[in-house]
Each structure stands twice: as structure tokens, then as C-alpha cells.
């Protein structure tokens, strides 16, 4: 649970950068110690997370641009990015539930 809803305003955490990688022809999210290659739609969603508009605004804007936008899927994507500490919930009065998924556990074995 990340406690985000339609009224949440999201923005990237400090140190998170959205870039286009010419070598792979793919959008990429760069952040402390990690890289996430993302598709066009995810990049469009992330690019709109500036802390200004709400998740609902964002879904509406996407809906105007693309066919078949699913609000639940957008919310799920954003939740995953909040859990991964790439997006930050701006203080806008939305409920912020305790986050149970922060422990990255045993995955980061090098």
C-alpha cells in the first residue's frame, strides 16, 4: 500500500531523472544506484508528475491523448514507483498510509 489516490499530487524524488537513451531508443528513469528502462506511455505519465496536477488530472490528460487508458493501471504504475521511492507524494492532504513495501530485502546482491 502506498496510500495514493486520484487526488494525490506526485513528483520525482530528488536525484531521479527521466531521460531518453539514444543507444537503446528507450526512455529511462535514472536514480541513485539504479536504472529503469520504461516505455513511451510510462514516460508520458512520469513526465506529467511535476507535483502540479493530481493523479485524476493526469489520467484525464492521458485519456484525451490515447485510446483505452485505464485509471487503475495508471494508479498501479504510480503506486509501484512510489513504493520504489522514485516518486514522492507531495503534501496535499491525501492520506499517506504506512508503507509496508519499502524493505528491498535480499534482491540487491552484487
Amino acid at each position: 500500500m502506498t496510500g495514493i489516490g486520484p487526488r494525490s499530487r506526485l513528483r520525482p524524488r530528488s536525484g531521479v531523472r527521466l531521460v531518453f537513451d539514444e543507444v537503446r531508443g528507450s526512455h529511462a528513469l535514472l536514480y541513485p544506484e539504479g536504472v529503469l528502462l520504461i516505455n513511451e506511455t510510462a514516460a508520458r505519465v512520469l513526465g506529467a508528475c511535476t507535483g502540479e496536477s493530481t493523479v485524476a488530472d493526469l489520467v484525464a490528460a492521458l485519456d484525451a491523448e490515447y485510446d483505452g487508458v485505464c485509471a487503475e493501471e495508471v494508479l498501479a504504475l504510480l503506486s509501484r514507483l512510489v513504493t520504489a521511492r522514485l516518486l514522492h507524494v507531495a503534501e496535499d492532504g491525501s492520506p499517506r498510509a504506512a508503507d509496508q513495501d519499502r524493505f528491498e530485502g535480499d534482491e540487491d546482491v552484487r
Partner: peptide, 15 residues
């Protein structure tokens, strides 16, 4: 620690 400080700190534990 991840439970206690999860709202402020991301914790990575390498086994």
C-alpha cells in the same frame, strides 16, 4: 528498521 523508518529511509540489505 525498515518498518520503523520506512517513511524516511529506503533500506537495502545485502545478504
Amino acid at each position: 528498521a525498515a518498518e520503523r523508518h520506512g517513511d524516511r529511509l529506503g533500506i537495502v540489505y545485502v545478504v
